[in-house]
Design a binder for these strands. Structure first.
Lengths: 219, 219
DNA sequence: ACTGTAATGTAATCTACATTACGTTCATCG
DNA sequence: CGATGAACGTAATGTAGATTACATTACAGT
């Protein structure tokens, strides 16, 4: 029975599943909007349902509790956000250009409204959900930093940079690029930087990094 | 009547005031402990009173509301924390030494449990209390950065550093020193650094900064 | 001692949810 | 068609906590 008419079963099941999946997504979208915008405590599940359509009962059926919905939401957002870092592949370019591009990517990603809202939530609810911070850091900043460190190492091996502690250098690079903008944004302060100021800041950060890690001329 | 026996009036008034003041302080201390430790939402005013002694009525009489108590508490903490930066005065020392000392001060201050708890609260309740972030940044990081910028300028004028944008350089210095430790701490992740690692990190930050801003030899 | 004022303790009020229960609707499947 | 189970909507239920009201007490100034 399970094997014979897969097609029929599949269509019906995919219909059912996709319906359920659609509800699920709708709830997650609504929850994202409300949680990220108003915070955990200030968002009621009735609000979420009012915004997503569907019923409270379904929400409880799917997520079990407010905390369950929240955790699912934040972990999903973490994956999305940190996934956006993966596409680097700048092996042929010269170091300055590669670092500039990486710096822009990093800056834009970390200061995107979504990422800011997520980190704000993680900080705000860190007492109740300590797992979230660990998860976020492991999948985001830490793996990103490791990638940067690896890149720096490879360039150091070719003599294009002077790096003795790749991990420290990577931290240094990220810190220079991000400055205190992330913290300011997390605090809710408007980070007002037009494109020109942003470009100037990033260029300065990269130049500082390069100057500090320039290979010795006489060696 | 007002002028004649000031002393008597004063003693009685100071007694009364100091009593009131004592209550006030007790409440603020208890509130600090609970708010900083458990967060705004998770702390009830009954908890505060239970911890401070006195009565709920007095609390309301003095602070008007939960939000009022919170604001008073956080602004007070901001003043205390940021006040601790003021004593620099390192004019005779050489640049490296002065920067090292400043870096240590900055690092210890920003990562002190109190400062971490305060910034965590500011971030968590930023939606409800946007003033707090502005106040904190104005009195803390911004004025601190300005002082660093001024110092760097003065050394640049003497040719001991190459600085074209003092404010940018100050941001750079602070970012290098703090790394992402502040954000990690705010997220509740344990920042495990023994004294040696800390010293190494700070030394590396200062060296990086100096290398990037060394005055040109051939000029 | 007498009075007004500030401080206390207790308990009532009110509101806002999280969570659960239940009766209804609707589509899918046999 | 009739049954099964998901999804729905609504309305309890229960709790927690902010805020207020009130009756009582301590105490300074006369």
């Amino acid at each position: 029975m399970e094997e014979s008419d897969l097609s029929v079963i599949e269509t019906s099941q995919t219909n059912a599943l996709s319906k359920r999946e659609a509800r699920r997504q709708a709830i997650l979208v609504a929850a994202a909007k409300l949680f990220l915008e108003k915070g955990y405590g200030a968002t009621s599940l009735s609000d979420v349902v009012a915004c997503s359509g569907g019923s409270l009962s379904t929400l409880y059926d799917m997520f079990g509790s407010k905390a369950g919905l929240f955790k699912e939401l934040v972990t999903g957002r973490c994956r999305e956000i940190t996934g956006a870092l993966a596409e680097a592949e700048a092996d042929g370019k010269d170091v300055r250009r590669a670092l500039m591009e990486q710096a822009h990517r990093l800056f834009d990603l970390v200061l995107s409204p979504d990422a800011v809202a997520v980190i704000r939530l993680i900080i705000a609810e860190g007492q109740q959900f300590p797992e979230l911070a660990e998860l976020f850091y492991a999948s985001g900043p830490d793996s990103g930093r490791a990638r940067v460190a690896e890149y720096l190492s490879s360039r150091a091996r070719r003599g294009e940079l002077a790096i003795d502690d790749p991990d420290g250098a990577a931290r240094c690079f990220c810190s220079l690029v991000l400055g205190d903008f992330q913290m300011r944004a997390a605090c809710g302060l408007a980070v007002r930087l037009d494109e020109q100021e942003k470009a100037r800041h990033i260029a300065a950060a990269v130049e500082t990094f390069l100057k500090a890690h320039a290979p010795e001329r006489s060696a």
